[in-house]
Amino acid sequence: MSELKVHASACDIEPMVHIEEIRAAFAARLKVALSANDMPSWGAGARLAKLAGVTPKASSKWLNGESMPGGAKMLALASALKVRVEWLEYGRGEMKEGPAPESRPLSPQPAEIPAFPTEDDAEDAYVHIKQYSALLSAGPGHANEHVEIRGTLAFKREWIRYMGLNPKNLKVIYAQGSSMEPTINDRDVLLVDESRLDPVDGQVFALFSENKGAIVKRLIFSDLEGWIVRSDNPDKALYADLKIPDGEIHEHRILGRVIWRGGVL
């Protein structure tokens, strides 16, 4: 009798393990598709949520191998990520459709356009970066439901080149609140590089949280606790650290790295 019970228990466990393996394999393919579309792990859950019309919590479960989307959501993801749905769901065949014969170029591609200004505009000593009405909260967060462009701010072209920046990736946004004092004060001007989306230990980033909206914080990495979103303000009773376990980084999107700040001393 006991032998039958052991056998039955093994049969109950085996399908569960099989399902977990399927989910893990799907999560791995999903991350490959994200990488192919230049989507970083940070905030991937929020991006996928918008693509599939679900909550960031649900999409994070896909990335963590805890669940899989249904047929309609799977098709929406495959279409948005430009991959074959059979590959994404089952791992069958190639990730992407091969190019049709007529779509292949018959002549060399045009030369790549230089990222930085050429000699034609070398006389212009300044780069004019667009200023946005959006606010990065150095406090509880800011929704920024309506954003407008409000003129430009001039930066020396020589400095932009020295810093290795591309003007196309830069925007000027203002800080609001005191959680990042004394590094960043209320109403300080911030230059944000939107191309720098990978977290870097000790650096200041503009982040988007589903709960708080747009915020500006310092990212700290701990071997024991994972990534920590930290305010520079020493009053931790008001501005406590936010710990983000590895399984939840997909729900916090990096908007860009803060390169420079300007304000009243």
Rank of each mutant, 00 (worst) to 15 (best):
V147F: 02
D235T: 06
F116H: 08
L4N: 07
F221N: 11
G93N: 12
L242K: 05
G263D: 10
H128A: 15
I149Q: 13
V216P: 00
L136G: 01
E148Y: 08
I19C: 06
L81S: 03
P167V: 03
A36F: 04
N169K: 00
H142D: 08
E119N: 08
R261E: 03
E94V: 14
G262K: 05
V258E: 08
V204R: 09
K61I: 06
G164S: 11
V83W: 04
F221T: 09
S2N: 10
I244F: 03
G139K: 02
S60I: 10
A138C: 12
E248Q: 10
F205E: 13
K156F: 11
A206E: 05
V147A: 07
K212C: 11
L75I: 15
Y239E: 02
P69G: 05
L219D: 14
G98F: 15
T118L: 15
M1D: 14
R92Q: 15
A154W: 06
P114A: 12
A122V: 12
G213Q: 09
A214I: 08
S209L: 01
A138N: 01
L135S: 04
E248S: 12
P105Q: 02
H252V: 12
A100M: 10
G45P: 11
E248H: 03
V85M: 10
A138Y: 01
M163Q: 13
Q203L: 10
P234L: 09
V127Y: 03
L136H: 01
M68F: 07
L75N: 12
Y174N: 02
R150S: 07
H252F: 09
I149S: 01
A76N: 06
N37M: 06
F26I: 01
E89K: 11
G247I: 14
W87F: 14
K168N: 07
N166C: 15
N185L: 02
K217G: 04
H252K: 04
R157W: 04
P167Y: 10
V6W: 09
H128Q: 08
G65R: 13
G93Q: 15
L191F: 00
E123R: 11
S209A: 08
K168P: 03
E225L: 15
G91L: 12
I259K: 04
A33Y: 06
D232P: 00
G262W: 08
L88C: 03
K171P: 00
A240V: 11
V17T: 12
P108M: 00
D120A: 13
L106S: 06
F221I: 04
L197W: 11
A33R: 01
P108R: 00
G45L: 05
V216R: 01
R23Q: 09
F116V: 06
D235Q: 09
V147W: 02
Q109W: 02
D201Y: 12
S209M: 04
K82W: 04
E97F: 11
D193L: 02
R187K: 15
Q109H: 04
G151P: 01
D12I: 12
A44H: 03
F116N: 02
A125K: 15
L48M: 09
H146Y: 05
E148R: 07
I160R: 00
L81P: 13
E86R: 08
G164M: 11
V85I: 03
M163L: 11
H18L: 05
K61E: 14
I254A: 02
K73C: 02
A49D: 00
A154L: 05
D193S: 00
G139M: 05
S107K: 12
